[in-house]
């Protein structure tokens, strides 16, 4: 449903995203991983319309949206969360989510009701009256999720919603993400927490230094020598394979 074709994003002399393409299938959870500084968040910004790509095209359901403003893309059904959470700090949780809900519900009472529903879905129903600024990190991540979800998107772009959470919080939120997909929302997620990627994603793209270096199932991608080298340095794939062969007599042990 979402296609990125040969996107390049240049900032002066720096090429943050270099000729990257990806395809997200409707109803899937697709992962986008890569080492720090690979250009993942930049690519998200390009998809959500916050940055205009230097080259390349983005299309949703076959319709070219490269020139659309971010708010138009939200109307078309793309919602994003921010890696660095961006709550409306002066508002409470319910009001925060309601802003999102207003996208498809013009009447205040409908929007407020929709916001309550979404809060329930992500597990924020107890915090509705709390100020957004007073939430914990985990709470803020849920709020990001809730606000985006309240726009009733077709595709949800999650930028490291698990970063900064402790293992038990991660365990709590994984079913939430899965339930969002099961309710019919396609998900494209940037994630560093491999436990979550392996657990949730059906298909993974790997971005390194702005280039798409691999794609496939999470398991396949993790064993891809190019991916290992991108994370651990040149020659490391070979070294790891040799070491594990020496230690145990087999590469997969």
């Amino acid at each position: 449903m979402l296609q990125v074709r040969n996107a390049t994003m240049r900032f002066g002399g720096l090429v943050a995203v270099n000729n990257a393409s990806l395809d997200v299938k409707e109803g899937s959870i697709t992962g986008l991983i890569g080492p720090n500084g690979a250009g993942k968040t930049t690519l998200f910004a390009v998809i959500a319309g916050f940055l205009k790509p230097t080259e390349g095209a983005i299309s949703l359901y076959g319709k070219d949206i490269t020139a659309e403003q971010p708010h138009k893309r939200a109307v078309s059904g793309i919602a994003r969360t921010f890696q660095i959470v961006q709550p409306f700090a002066g508002l409470n949780v319910h009001e925060n989510i309601t802003v999102g809900a207003y996208l498809r519900h013009a009447r205040p009472s409908d929007a407020v009701e929709k916001a309550r529903e979404v809060a329930h879905q992500v597990g924020l129903e107890k915090d509705l009256e709390k100020s957004a600024a007073s939430l914990t990190v985990a709470g803020r991540k849920r709020l990001e999720l809730a606000r985006a979800l309240a726009t009733e998107p077709k595709i949800l772009l999650l930028d490291e919603v698990l970063a900064g959470l402790n293992p038990s919080e991660i365990r709590d939120i994984i079913p939430v993400i899965r339930s969002i997909r099961d309710s019919g929302v396609t998900i494209l997620m940037i994630e560093h927490v491999m436990q979550a990627v392996m657990n949730l994603c059906e298909h993974v793209y790997v971005l390194a230094q702005g280039k798409m270096i691999a794609e496939g199932t999470p398991a396949a991608v993790c064993n891809d020598p190019a991916v290992i080298e991108a994370y651990l340095g040149k020659g490391s794939a070979e070294r790891i394979a040799r070491q594990s062969a020496e230690n145990t007599g087999g590469p997969n042990a």
Binding site: H71, V75, R80, Q86, L91, G100
Partner: peptide, 11 residues
């Protein structure tokens, strides 16, 4: 409160 967040929510 936050222009970027507003944009992302279709404002």
């Amino acid at each position: 409160e936050n222009e970027d967040a507003a944009k992302a929510l279709g404002v």
